[in-house]
Write a protein that binds this DNA or RNA. Structure first.
Lengths: 102, 102
DNA sequence: TAAAAACATCGAAATATTTAGATATTTAAA
DNA sequence: TTTAAATATCTAAATATTTCGATGTTTTTA
């Protein structure tokens, strides 16, 4: 006898795909994603900012877009923000794209 | 004795990823990709145009961006253009995204 | 409790994208 | 060979995005 623990597989609708694509369609935001993905744990907002020669408000805006596209998850810790990659959304987006090539 | 016929696996650089993301970050272009991917063979430019309530020049512009991002391959046949999905690029892009979630 | 740190929000300028109409180009059909 | 069909290019307007500086909010530290 088998028991399946079946976690839902996220399926993105086209509005989500559009938003995610738009979020990734900027050199800074793409670099941010790359940087954060290379971390084992998380990355702090101010760390991210230090890597780029952009105003703090600009960086805040870019990070917000990545969070709104659900590519990043932001967790508040005191006066800091910790970012992690949202694996589930990355995988769902990746699957959506892969299916286009069939 | 074994012979490997080893086809190169396409690796995208971040400029390409940015361009592809930008190309996919528009509702019309995303729909175009969806439509063409659902076809077994190819799709003609004028067929694509008929599905949308957009000027011909606008459609031409959208298709051009998808071709320039290499998501679509355009083949000229007489006075028509045939579009097919560029599987290799879709897969390479999909892989790039999947790797972000690791 | 005053100051500083981390981040968000607002307003405005600079820049980029989207769109349509007019026109040009190429190829097929009459 | 004139006309029509399919597509591309150019220009300009409308719209959206990016960026910064100024200022606001929240939390920590002195």
């Amino acid at each position: 006898m088998f028991f399946y623990i079946c976690s839902m597989i996220t399926e993105l609708n086209s509005k989500q795909v559009e938003k995610i694509s738009k979020a990734l369609g900027d050199p800074y935001r793409l670099q941010i994603m790359d940087m954060i993905s290379k971390r084992k744990d998380f990355m702090q907002c101010c760390e991210v900012s230090e890597c780029f020669n952009l105003a703090q408000s600009t960086m805040s805006h870019h990070l917000k877009q990545l969070v709104e596209a659900e590519l990043l998850v932001a967790e508040k810790e005191g006066r800091n923000l910790k970012f992690t990659i949202n694996r589930e959304i990355c995988e769902a987006y990746s699957r959506y794209i892969a299916r286009l090539g069939f």
